[in-house]
């Protein structure tokens, strides 16, 4: 069985690869955005903690 024949799926290629392709795309997008969201939250929290500890040590106007 050749690659073209495999992709053709007996005339059902569009339906099958449309299904699997969209699902794969969505999964990759979800993983990407969830990782980015955690990374951003972690960085912002660390930044805020550093800022507040500086304020606490030096006073508000310090």
């Amino acid at each position: 069985m050749g690659i073209a024949e495999f992709l053709h799926m007996g005339g059902h290629g569009f339906y099958i690869w449309g299904s699997y392709g969209t699902a794969l795309f969505l999964v990759i997008v979800e993983v990407f955005f969830v990782s980015k969201r955690r990374k951003k939250a972690k960085e912002e929290l660390e930044q805020m903690e550093a800022e507040f500890s500086r304020v606490d040590n030096q006073g508000i106007n310090g």
Binding site: V34, R37, R38, A41, L45, F52
Partner: peptide
Amino acid sequence: AVVLRRAQAVILERKKVALW
């Protein structure tokens, strides 16, 4: 895997709000 990761992000986000 993905839900635990998202939950981690939410914990950090809420911690940030509480800290603020």
